[in-house]
Amino acid sequence: MGMSVTISRAAEQDAEQIFRLRYLCFQSEAALYGDHRIGPLSESLADVRGEIASGVVCVARLGDEVIGSVYGRVTADGAGEIDGLCVHPRLQGHGIGARLLRAAEAAVTEAAPVGAFRLSAGTRSEPGLRLYRRLGYRATGRAEGPDGIPRIVLERATGAGQDPAAQDPDAGTAVYAATA
């Protein structure tokens, strides 16, 4: 009998596993842009601990191993911001990314009602962009990330206080769970 993947809020003791996972997952993104200074590869363990303490961090676990993570927070303008979605490369393509994204949306909504969720992805990050579009996100603009990587900004409107997972009947059936 195999183990199933569980999704939950991260705890401080998960910080090191999240840190290592993000470093592994974002290697392919760095190679895509020819720049290993991208945000997830330049963050510190203290940065990850700070995210867990101040924002919403959800993790996917297979047994005791953290195999996926995502950050979420409410921005100053009242939107829910999602960042850093990643799933271990050996486990991509099983809907884990979609489950993590929806869990982060639900956790952010618990913290404060939001009218929209916002995220961004590199312009060359097609697998991630496909996932986000399939989950109802639409391109609203372009921006340059703090690391200089050109990004597409995507948003998904939601009824304030409504459970985001209830709005997407296909939330658990992602075809690819790429990094954000």
Rank of each mutant, 00 (worst) to 15 (best):
R73V: 05
G34F: 06
C58M: 14
L119I: 11
A111S: 14
A79I: 05
E43C: 03
C25T: 08
E65L: 02
V70K: 04
H36F: 15
G34I: 05
T109R: 08
L62A: 00
V153G: 04
E155T: 15
Y176T: 06
G141L: 01
M3S: 07
S8M: 10
A177L: 10
E144R: 13
T179Y: 11
D35A: 09
P150C: 00
A15K: 00
D170F: 11
R156T: 10
V57G: 01
A143G: 01
V87E: 00
G136P: 09
S120G: 09
A139Q: 13
R49H: 03
A98S: 15
V5S: 06
Q17S: 07
A30R: 05
R90M: 02
T179H: 04
G84I: 08
R90K: 10
R20D: 06
A112L: 12
Y176A: 12
P169A: 10
I82G: 03
Y33E: 04
R49L: 09
L41V: 02
L101D: 04
L100H: 07
R9L: 14
T123E: 13
G80V: 11
E81M: 13
E81I: 06
R90D: 11
L119C: 14
A98L: 00
D163G: 13
S42K: 04
L41I: 01
H36I: 06
G128C: 02
D147R: 02
T158Q: 12
V5F: 02
Y33M: 05
I52G: 07
T179C: 15
R133G: 15
I38A: 05
R151F: 04
Q13N: 07
Q92T: 06
D64T: 11
A106K: 14
A98V: 04
R99T: 04
R73H: 09
A106F: 11
V153S: 12
G78T: 09
A107D: 13
R156S: 08
E51F: 13
Y137Q: 06
L135F: 09
G97M: 01
G78D: 10
L41T: 12
S54V: 09
T173C: 10
G93F: 13
E105S: 05
E12P: 02
S8D: 14
V66T: 09
G34Y: 04
S44K: 02
I67F: 01
V87Y: 06
E16D: 00
E110W: 10
A31V: 00
A165I: 07
A11E: 14
E65D: 06
A76Q: 15
G55Q: 10
Y33S: 05
G80F: 08
E12S: 10
A31T: 05
R134H: 13
T158R: 12
L85W: 11
G63W: 06
P164E: 07
E12L: 06
R118W: 12
V87R: 00
L119Q: 09
P150T: 08
A111Y: 10
P89F: 08
S120R: 09
P150F: 02
G68L: 03
L62N: 02
G161F: 14
C86S: 07
V114H: 14
L129N: 11
V57A: 06
R73N: 13
